[in-house]
Amino acid sequence: MATKKYTVTLPEELAEEIRQEVGSGGFSAYVTRAIERQREQDRLGELVAWLEGEHGPVTDDELASAEAERRELESHFAEQGEQHRKAS
């Protein structure tokens, strides 16, 4: 992928914290990943808005059901991982 240098203004304290964490050579890669994640979140937000426009907002019951299913799946995969570790 081609790259191009841009000038951006960041709060100094935040920029220095990031630079200390990733080193000067990793700063651009860190910012690139952050922008990519933000774009993904923006697109997901647009999708949610469109789906809610088409089908109405998600109800509290639907959210609770989805959260229960997520917990069940998380538990299932945690158990599988534990069984795999014991078998190894």
Rank of each mutant, 00 (worst) to 15 (best):
M1P: 10
M1K: 09
M1H: 10
T3P: 00
T3G: 12
T3K: 13
T3S: 15
K4P: 00
K5Q: 14
K5F: 04
K5D: 08
K5L: 12
Y6V: 15
Y6T: 07
T7C: 01
T7N: 09
V8M: 12
V8Y: 07
V8N: 03
V8A: 12
L10P: 02
P11T: 00
E12N: 08
E12V: 03
E12R: 11
E12S: 12
E13A: 08
E13N: 04
L14I: 12
L14C: 01
A15Q: 10
E16N: 09
E16W: 00
E17S: 09
E17M: 09
I18H: 02
I18D: 03
I18V: 15
R19A: 06
Q20C: 05
Q20G: 08
Q20L: 12
E21W: 00
V22K: 05
V22N: 03
V22P: 04
V22A: 04
G23Y: 07
G23F: 08
G25E: 07
G25T: 06
G25D: 10
G26M: 07
G26R: 08
G26N: 10
G26V: 06
S28F: 02
S28A: 15
S28Q: 05
A29R: 12
A29I: 05
Y30D: 01
V31R: 01
V31H: 02
R33T: 11
R33L: 11
A34D: 00
A34K: 11
I35E: 07
I35V: 15
I35M: 15
I35G: 06
E36L: 15
E36C: 07
R39S: 06
R39C: 01
E40W: 03
E40K: 13
Q41A: 13
D42N: 13
R43E: 15
L44S: 03
L44D: 04
G45W: 01
G45A: 12
L47W: 05
L47M: 13
A49C: 01
A49I: 01
A49V: 03
W50H: 13
W50G: 01
L51F: 14
L51E: 15
E52P: 09
E52V: 03
G53N: 11
E54T: 08
E54V: 11
H55A: 10
G56D: 02
P57H: 06
V58I: 15
V58M: 13
V58F: 09
T59G: 03
T59Q: 03
T59W: 05
D60M: 05
D60N: 06
D61R: 14
D61T: 09
E62H: 10
E62R: 13
E62F: 07
L63E: 10
A64C: 00
A64K: 07
A64Q: 05
S65M: 04
A66H: 01
A66C: 00
E67G: 01
E67A: 13
E67Y: 04
A68N: 09
E69L: 14
E69H: 11
R71F: 00
R71A: 09
E74V: 02
S75W: 02
S75N: 04
S75A: 12
H76Q: 11
H76C: 00
F77P: 01
F77I: 11
A78D: 10
E79W: 06
E79N: 08
E79F: 05
G81H: 02
E82I: 05
Q83N: 04
H84D: 03
R85I: 01
K86R: 15
S88D: 09
